[in-house]
Design a protein around this nucleic acid. Structure first.
Lengths: 121, 121
DNA sequence: TGACTTATTGCAAGTCATTTGCAATAATTC
DNA sequence: GAATTATTGCAAATGACTTGCAATAAGTCA
């Protein structure tokens, strides 16, 4: 465990952030870390299961802390690109899939696109 | 409307295909079309609303015909990468979002990952 | 503590899907 | 059918992400 890894872990949150968001956060908060290191560290975090990676429409992957208690989905604003989190009850959908097919669902990603509260004003 | 556009339109289906899948289909079915042309044409189709584009985890965008009557979601196999379609009742989720937030949902993408029927055998 | 082994960092350079510039060609218009 | 406009396809650029590699920092064991 190095200083860089500690900083990257500390900058992770329960809402998804891109590597460049994390990078600029670290630049303005004491410990600049090379983006390559951030990529490598985050991929490592994903492998050992403490972070989640989601590929968004804008071509950026975003990373967030994983927590069963904090399972949620994403509201992505078409205008400003902001990503909100929302907890949703997805059991019904999974049940529906199990009824209709033989597919064994292991994970899922639900993304909703539209206009966020700020951009509506 | 050119021959290439006609061919690309004809090769589109209601399940999502990548540009390279479309390209190799066209190579083996009479009319090879440059991938650049396929990219440009598909983006055009998406703009005028006759095709849908989804970015998948494997870094490929996939395109499919849009049809209100054929609204569905995706089951992506973690092993072989195959994409199945499944119609799901998503009204409850949208209602849930409308109740909980001010976010105006305009579209959504629901993807489920797991093991497909073939790979289970 | 200090020498040794192993893992991590960061730069440069590579990869790969996708986009863009541009000249040649094909549709469309009159 | 000539003039205008849009489309094609090659080559080269873009941009997120990855890899090679030498330098450095952690962890280990005496």
């Amino acid at each position: 465990m190095t200083i860089q890894r500690r900083c990257i872990l500390d900058s992770l949150t329960f809402f998804p952030q891109s590597v460049f968001e994390i990078s600029s956060f670290l630049k303005t908060h004491g410990t600049p870390v090379d983006v390559v290191t951030i990529y490598r560290t985050l991929n490592c975090f994903v492998e050992i299961g403490i972070a989640g990676k989601t590929k968004f429409k804008d071509d950026f992957s975003r990373y967030e802390l994983i927590s069963e208690a904090n399972h949620h989905h994403h509201l992505v604003c078409d205008k400003c690109g902001a990503v909100e989190d929302i907890p949703l009850d997805d059991k019904l959908l999974i049940d529906e899939i199990n009824k209709k097919t033989n597919f064994k669902v292991k994970s899922h990603a639900l993304e909703f696109f539209g206009i966020c509260t700020k951009c509506q004003q």
